[in-house]
Structures are given as C-alpha cells and as structure tokens.
C-alpha cells in the first residue's frame, strides 16, 4: 500500500512556481527523504500533504485521503513536525505532552516520549527554559505522541548536537521498522544517507533525481578525490590544470578541490605524478567512496549552471 501518493503537484505563489509538477510515492513503512536547496519547495510539498496548504493543481493523497479535505480522523493518523513552530512557553514538557497527547485516540506517555528523545531530565522543566535543540526535541516528541501511521518531519534535527542527532536517527529508524511511513526533509546528507530508504532531490520545485541512496551514489561515480589547491597554482587556473589530470570536471570550494572519478587508480596516478614532477605537495589529499553529498552537489551544481 502507498502511504503517500503525489501526482504532478503544483503550487504557485503568483509568478513563483514553488512546486512545479512533482510526482513521487512513499510506501508504507518507508523513510523517504526530500533534499534540496533553500527555497527548493520541500516545506511547501510537506505542508500540502499535512493539509496546512492547498495545492494549485495536481493530486496528493496521504493514507488514501486528500489532505485538503481531511478531517479529524486523518489528523489522528498523521504526525507533524513543522520546520518552525512554537510551543507554549509557560508549560512544562510533561504538561505539553499530556495536553497535545490528550486529543489523540491513542497516545504515548510523557515518560516514554522523553526517554525516546532524550529529555528525561527536563520532564518538569518549562518549555521557555529549554535550549533551542531541546525545544526541537519536544517538537519531535509531539510529532509522535499520537502514534502516527505517517510522520512528516521537516528538518527535524536542525539545532541538534551530534549525540542528539544520532539518538533521533535511531528513533526515526525504529519508527520505520515499526511500519510508520516517514517523509523527511533535511539538509544533512549523512542523515538522509543513513535514514532514507529512498531520496528525492528537488530543485526549483522540480524533482531532478530519485532513488535509493546507493543508486544515486552509483549513478554519479564511485570515488571522490579531494585535496587543497597548491600555492603554486592560481585558484582561477585550477580547473584548467586539474580537470584534465583527473579526467573529469572539478568542484572548488575555498581552496579545496574535489572531483568524482570513474577510475581512481588512474586519476590519482596522473595527479601524483604531476605533483612529483612539479615538486609540489598535495595537502589533505584524500580518496574516498562518493557519498550522497557528492551526488547532491553535482546535481545541484549542474542545475545551477543550466539556469545561468
């Protein structure tokens, strides 16, 4: 069964096509991650599916229901973590969990939830006294208090420290294994790579790539070579010098130069031979398996070039 079904979805704000013909599915029990730059349209899609916004055209179904027309029953079966929304500052963590939980048919207890999100010490603390990351964990707790069948997470781990992020990954993974379908947006590619069964990459309201993280990674190419541009080479000349050596286009950020190569042994051999001949050091030289981040960067880079 499909938990979420999106067909040619569009959302226009005047001349701005925030969502411009998007089609994808999320299967039951699947964790699906939407990636994309700021303003790509992730939140817009998620909020249409939550029933917070209406689409300009196209179809969206969640649990077989059109969210725009959905009623109480529907909201009982979904859980929402918005990208940003406040919580009553005057209340304690326990109070808000009980208050919000109290309107669902089935609910998790405050004790269970604080253990899941790692806020055991803060059960009786006022929301207003929590740090930003701790408030975000309460957001996450409130998203799952009603035992949802479909969970929407719009950048849920923004502001989390590394330990909290890992803990919430375990939580989200566990939700998926328990049969909850999760639609996640994130800017953390390691998060998507770790959690997502499938990933969709959005750019300017359109889905430009979709697949399992492994598929996407293998689509680009296997290996990433990176190093610092040596002082002897002008930054502006670097692509002309190293592109041919590596046999592919290079990406530069700061002095770091990066390329995804098909045949790492050959490429590195040419590169190091060149360096030995020129008697320069290649600082921070690394050769590693391509990650989702490389895929994402190359996808969004080509997209931006086309636009220019």
């Amino acid at each position: 069964m499909l938990a979420i079904e999106v067909r040619d979805l569009r959302k226009h704000y005047g001349d701005l096509y925030a969502v411009d013909g998007v089609t994808f599915d999320v299967r039951q029990g699947e964790v699906y991650a939407l990636l994309g730059e700021n303003g790509a349209g992730k939140s817009t899609i998620v909020e249409i599916l939550e029933g917070h916004r209406s689409a300009t055209s196209g179809q969206a179904q969640v649990l077989g229901i059109d969210p725009a027309a959905a009623k109480r029953d529907f909201r009982d079966r979904i859980g929402i973590v918005l990208q940003s929304s406040g919580i009553e500052r005057e209340f304690t963590v326990r109070e808000v969990i009980e208050l919000y939980g109290g309107c669902y048919r089935e609910r998790r207890s405050a004790e269970e939830l604080v253990a899941l999100v790692g806020l055991q010490d803060k059960l009786n603390a006022r929301i207003g006294s929590l740090s930003g990351g701790q408030q975000r964990r309460v957001d996450l707790a409130l998203g799952i208090v009603g035992k949802p069948e479909v969970l929407f997470l719009d950048e849920p781990t923004t502001g989390f420290d590394p330990a909290a992020r890992r803990k919430s990954w375990d939580l989200i993974e566990q939700m998926g294994t328990d049969g909850t379908s999760v639609l996640l947006t994130t800017h953390y590619l390691d998060e998507a790579e770790r959690l997502a069964d499938r990933v969709g990459v959005l750019a300017k309201g359109q889905l430009i790539a979709e697949g399992t993280p492994e598929d996407l990674i293998s689509q680009v190419s296997g290996t990433t070579v990176s190093f610092m541009v040596p002082d002897t080479t002008e930054l502006s000349e670097a692509p002309g010098v190293f592109g041919p050596l590596l046999g592919t286009e290079v990406r530069i950020s700061g002095r770091l130069i990066e390329a995804s190569v098909e045949h790492p042994a050959e490429a590195v051999n040419r590169l190091t031979s060149w360096a030995l001949d020129a008697e320069v050091e290649l600082e921070s030289l690394s050769v590693r398996r391509a990650s989702l981040e490389d895929v994402y960067l190359s996808l969004t880079a080509t997209d931006n070039e086309e636009a220019e």
Partner: peptide
Amino acid sequence: RDEGVLKRWRGTPLP
C-alpha cells in the same frame, strides 16, 4: 498565532 502554536494545534485531531 505568531508563535506558530495555533498552526501546531490545527495539525492535531483536536477540533
């Protein structure tokens, strides 16, 4: 409403 609390409640099954 500014805090986003109203929006949060609208996403729950509370009428």
